[in-house]
């Protein structure tokens, strides 16, 4: 059954690739088949089955991309002369701004995420003893929250706008810890 589901996954991604050329129905069918195959793998073999399925799916998709590159026509289209997304700081105020951004997104956001994760596990446990679920929740939630903070902060226009996200997170962590 695992082998059948894996083969179905490969077929599904090929259908998605064919459908990408314009036959939207085929692409939708492909995604539906992929979802079904992954469901079967997860049902049968849990996280292991899901992981093996996703690896097979990625491999198929990458093979399709490489084939597209191999068969791409040679053209002399030149890339637009776009400005680089960020510039090298030359003035002191630019350097100070960069250092402020670094401080906010690295140590400040890291600490806020850590405190929030600590507060979550305290709130979930209430007064109960420390257990494996609480430990793992703390350790695993922290990087996830930090990634979310980084994503929010780095899409703000100015360093002053990057303060709110970690501040709100830290306050939420304090409230959760206080409620525990």
């Amino acid at each position: 059954m695992t082998a059948i589901a894996l083969i179905a996954l490969v077929v599904a991604l090929v259908l998605v690739r064919i459908g990408w050329n314009g036959a939207r129905g085929l692409a939708l069918l492909g995604w539906a088949l992929a979802l079904g195959a992954l469901t079967v793998l997860a049902w049968q073999d849990g996280a292991w089955g899901l992981s093996v399925g996703v690896v097979a799916g990625m491999g198929t998709a990458l093979a399709c991309v490489l084939h597209a590159g191999w068969s791409a026509p040679a053209k002399n289209l030149r890339a637009r002369r776009e400005p680089p997304a960020i510039s090298i700081p030359h003035h002191r105020r630019d350097l100070v701004r960069r250092l402020a951004v670094f401080a906010l997104v690295v140590p400040v956001a890291f600490a806020a995420a850590e405190w929030f994760a600590f507060g979550v596990q305290a709130a979930i446990r209430g007064g109960a003893a420390l257990d494996s679920d609480a430990v793992v929740l703390t350790l695993y939630l922290q990087p996830v929250i930090w990634i979310a903070l980084l994503t929010v902060q780095l899409t703000r226009a100015r360093p002053s706008q990057m303060i709110a996200a970690p501040l709100v997170t830290a306050i939420a962590g304090t409230m959760l810890w206080g409620a525990a």
Partner: peptide, 23 residues
């Protein structure tokens, strides 16, 4: 699934970066 591998090097590079990144 667009990979302009035989275009201008910068275009090809951007496609490699984005396609490999997505999949």
């Amino acid at each position: 699934f667009s990979l302009r591998a035989r275009h201008d090097a910068q275009l090809a590079r951007a496609d490699w970066h984005n396609r490999l990144g997505v999949w």
